[in-house]
Design a protein around this nucleic acid. Structure first.
Lengths: 165, 165
DNA sequence: CCGGCTATATATAATCT
DNA sequence: TAGATTATATATAGCCG
């Protein structure tokens, strides 16, 4: 009863980057992160003297659009649309063909491949760690509850590596 | 050379939010923060199921435009313009033109990532071989039920996370 | 120009008010 | 439903290779 009376607060917890199902959590998180995103954008604008436009569409609970812009969203959009009149040199028919493939599909494919890559990297990393550990001794042969703190730490680390993004 | 033999690293320092004058510092900061901004946007998109479009204009050293979008910048812009009838002045052609550029970038990125994935797979394969070669009865080969509940949970979560993110 | 590293500044998930 | 608090997760400034 000396130091750790009770836990005042869990503090920030790690959350998986996946759709938040709890409506109220989502609302709070959206609000906070949107603010944070705009703040980051604002800082980038000031620090680097760049112009930024951000548009955010929220579809639930109510459809609503938020935006941030320096100098303002409209001018950014206008500039953006005007800046790339055409990079469409006649060389790439493949690109033309892909247009029908829809960007969203490409994005999904890219995302999936990136995920696979991440998985492979982590798998390799964990295997590396295990291999390294196995040189010492086969501590994992013993029941979990008999493991020393160090070994538990190692195991934990391996797990963390596996799931850390 | 008495007190501070060496300084491993200054660590992150606080910087004033004002235009960075040093060109190379600015370049580095811009690159890092732009990446961070896009990552935050990506997370917000996933966490809250919203659509986001970001456009960043860098005027020095060279004029260049960066963008992030989910599903893609153009659709975000289009949606935004649709909600503001006044600004919708025959921009469709420009949007179309820019879409080509986007697809090309995506394709290049995809190709690159696929290549990286191949490399990682090979590495993983090698590690797998090593594991097989030296396997006795390491825990990851052993029956699942020998793992502690916590570790098992962590592993499960890691897998789920990797598959769904 | 990148990507990695370390120490620190910030952002923010949970909790509390 | 909205802020204030707190402990932790992340983002990054400065340095290197």
């Amino acid at each position: 009863m000396e130091k750790k009376m009770k836990k005042p607060c869990m503090g920030r917890q790690k959350i998986p980057i996946a759709k938040i199902t709890n409506k109220s959590h989502l609302q709070v998180t959206f609000s906070k992160r949107r603010t944070g995103l705009f703040k980051k954008a604002s800082e980038l604008t000031t620090l680097c003297g760049v112009q930024i436009g951000i548009i955010v569409f929220l579809f639930s609970p109510a459809n609503k659009a938020f935006s941030f812009g320096h100098p303002d969203v409209d001018s950014i959009i206008h500039r953006f649309l005007s800046s790339n009149p055409q990079l469409h040199s006649g060389a790439n028919r493949l690109i033309e063909a892909h247009r029908n493939a829809n960007i969203r599909e490409l994005n999904m494919e890219l995302t999936q491949v990136v995920n696979e890559l991440e998985l492979e990297r982590k798998r390799g990393k964990v295997l590396d760690e295990m291999r390294k550990a196995s040189r010492k001794q086969c501590w994992w042969e013993a029941p979990i509850d008999e493991l020393g703190l160090y070994e538990l730490h190692q195991l934990r680390m391996a797990m963390e590596d596996l799931k850390t993004s």
